[in-house]
């Protein structure tokens, strides 16, 4: 009896899967460009990129980061995630010659990347919460300060 049920021919078709927006390469590369644009000399250590990338992935992340800067959160509460997706995004950006490596562990915007970043900043319709966040924290994200506050080093 049961065998008859299995005599039906099954077909499987692949359905594309949804993806969180922050895993789209173009979104993340744009965020990377914006972060670098807000750094001194358009240059940043990988370490700092990871911190800011983690902060920018979600609204809660942004709020936690701001609390951390304001000293309202103990650094031990925060686990900075080293996210493989960022490394992938950096690879894409390197490949597209939007950023280049400087020294061992630093990245900076290329001319092409800087141009695109300016263009992104000028367009008032896109990424406005992200831009607002960067503008707000900009004075407090010097390399040293990030090291002190997040990694508790150099004190």
């Amino acid at each position: 009896m049961a065998r008859e049920y299995f005599a039906v021919k099954f077909t499987f078709s692949r359905r594309p899967a949804p993806l969180p927006p922050d895993l789209r390469p173009m979104w993340r590369v744009s965020i990377l460009l914006l972060i670098l644009q807000h750094c001194r000399s358009h240059r940043s250590s990988l370490q700092r990129l990871h911190v800011l990338n983690w902060a920018m992935r979600s609204i809660e992340g942004q709020q936690e980061f701001k609390d951390l800067l304001a000293g309202q959160l103990s650094p031990s509460d925060i686990i900075v995630r080293y996210e493989p997706a960022l490394i992938q995004a950096i690879d894409f950006a390197l490949g597209g010659i939007l950023v280049r490596r400087v020294g061992g562990d630093k990245l900076e915007l290329t001319e092409k990347g800087a141009k695109l970043a300016v263009k992104l900043m000028e367009d008032q319709w896109t990424l406005s919460p992200e831009k607002a966040f960067l503008q707000e924290v900009r004075p407090q994200i010097a390399e040293n300060r990030i090291r002190q506050i997040v990694y508790r080093r150099g004190e």
Binding site: P25, M26, V29, S30, L98, D123, T126
Partner: peptide
């Protein structure tokens, strides 16, 4: 962003 990207010859 994808529009911007393709305008600026960003391959991704």
């Amino acid at each position: 962003l994808l529009d911007f990207g393709s305008q600026h010859a960003v391959e991704i």
